[in-house]
């Protein structure tokens, strides 16, 4: 379970998160929505320990990510995979090297098994025979899938998706949504998806939280958010201009 406890964060005295509280249950698929710049990606980076909160705490499996030492933080990070908005594939490495880097560095599997495992993970994300290609030779959708395969190679318990469908055509975006669902169902991975794409949020989420002005403005199921009377929520999900109620 991931618990976000009253997390606040400012950049250059500009508050982004202002006491966010959230609980992500194991096995769930939790979607965080909100307008651009509302701090969704910042919140994800706090969970994985890339950013430290000014105030508050984040607990992953009953251990505080904020106060742990680097070695312990790295042990926790092995349990958390992250799909970055821009894929963040290593330019200088081919697909196989990208996917296998983590397991090679941590010596998680015997050397001679790694190629087969890379192929299996590529198969899982519907890609075949691209092991020797470099990121510059891949389309946006393929990069996202390779990045997902790289994260899954570490066999994480939690998967964080930062705007997984942004910049993709509707067909590819839907394919990525299907992959997120498939990863959750087949591997039992707890998913946290940050998005402002409501079609994606409804499809992949069994729980949706909305961030607004540094706080969780709404939290509930997809049905509950559809029926919500909260004007900020309604304006966001219907695409109208936000007028604070």
């Amino acid at each position: 379970m991931i618990e976000i406890k009253k997390v606040s964060k400012s950049f250059d005295e500009q508050p982004v998160l202002n006491g966010v509280e959230l609980i992500i249950e194991d096995g769930s698929s939790h979607v965080i929505i909100g307008r651009s710049g509302c701090g969704k990606s910042v919140l994800l980076k706090h969970i994985v320990g890339l950013l430290k909160p000014d105030e508050g705490d984040i607990w992953v499996d009953n251990v505080s990510v904020v106060s742990m030492r680097r070695r312990e933080l790295y042990k926790t990070r092995v349990k958390i995979g992250m799909l970055f908005q821009g894929s963040a594939l290593f330019d200088s490495m081919n697909v196989e090297e990208n996917i296998s880097l983590g397991v090679r560095e941590h010596r998680m599997f015997p050397h001679d098994e790694i190629s087969d495992r890379v192929a299996a993970k590529l198969e899982l994300v519907d890609l075949h025979g691209i092991q020797k290609k470099f990121p510059s030779e891949l389309s946006g959708g393929m990069k996202k899938r390779v990045s997902l395969a790289r994260a899954l190679m570490m066999e994480p318990k939690y998967m964080l998706y930062d705007e997984p469908t942004t910049g993709l055509d509707p067909v590819m975006a839907d394919a990525i949504n299907d992959l997120i669902i498939s990863v959750r169902d087949r591997l039992g991975v707890t998913s946290i998806v940050v998005t402002h794409d409501m079609a994606s949020a409804y499809k992949v989420g069994d729980h949706i939280s909305m961030l607004h002005e540094g706080l969780v403005n709404f939290s509930g199921t997809p049905d509950e958010i559809r029926k919500s009377k909260n004007r900020v929520v309604q304006n966001f999900i219907t695409g109208n201009q936000v007028v604070v109620a």
């Binding site: 320990g49 890339l50 992250m82 970055f84 963040a88 594939l89 290593f90 330019d91 880097l101 994260a151």
Partner: peptide, 22 residues
């Protein structure tokens, strides 16, 4: 610098690999 602005260094951190070491 390119790795930093394209989040490749964050990706290394997420794979629990120290960017200073690697």
């Amino acid at each position: 610098g390119t790795m930093k602005v394209t989040e490749q260094i964050d990706a290394l951190e997420c794979l629990a690999i120290s960017p200073v070491r690697y």
